[in-house]
């Protein structure tokens, strides 16, 4: 389906949908409360049956950025091979999105990684724990205000001696 047709079809349902294109990437920009509905519409009515990518970026130091976090969902239709990206903007303190887990079980680990790296919560996720960083870790390392160099967080970790283990 051409991108224009998809946009026209979606605009009937979601009036304030913004779109952009770059190279072959086609993006729909939606507001956080609409994300789940848009994803569901894309999955059920437009046959985007695979969530191949879910990631985020921190736009703290980005030129001319107005919002803090961008969360990107990459959707793929395995029948037609089309891709579409759904992007949404988030600002502190409301760092919560509805989880895509009810639509795609593949969202499980990807949402956990975004939570781990950026501290974005996913409502309705069955098991939102840190995935790559240890449980005791208190910061969100891929945020732009987390330093690249330094002594790390080791001083926060509990030390287990041989006698206690």
């Amino acid at each position: 389906m051409p991108f224009d047709t998809l946009i026209t079809a979606l605009k009937l349902k979601f009036a304030d949908l913004a779109t952009s294109e770059f190279r072959d990437n086609r993006r729909l920009v939606v507001k956080p409360p609409q994300v789940f509905e848009v994803l569901q519409t894309l999955k059920d009515e437009h046959r985007f049956d695979m969530l191949f990518e879910l990631t985020a970026a921190d736009y703290l130091k980005y030129p001319k950025a107005t919002d803090r976090f961008g969360v990107v969902y990459g959707l793929l239709s395995t029948t037609t091979g089309e891709r579409v990206f759904v992007k949404t903007w988030l600002n502190e303190p409301e760092l919560t999105l509805p989880s895509a887990f009810p639509l795609w079980r593949g969202a499980d680990w990807m949402e956990r990684e975004v939570y781990d790296m950026y501290g974005i919560n996913f409502d309705g996720h069955p098991d939102l724990r840190r995935i790559l960083m240890p449980e005791e870790f208190t910061s969100y390392p891929l945020r732009k205000d987390y330093p690249l160099r330094g002594r790390g967080e080791r001083h926060n970790f509990p030390v287990i001696t041989r006698a206690e283990s």
Partner: peptide
């Protein structure tokens, strides 16, 4: 497809991609 598999693992399950 639900778990976002690609490559040989998806192809071994019949996803022609």
């Amino acid at each position: 497809i639900d778990l976002s598999c690609t490559g040989p693992i998806a192809r071994a399950s019949g996803v022609v991609r």
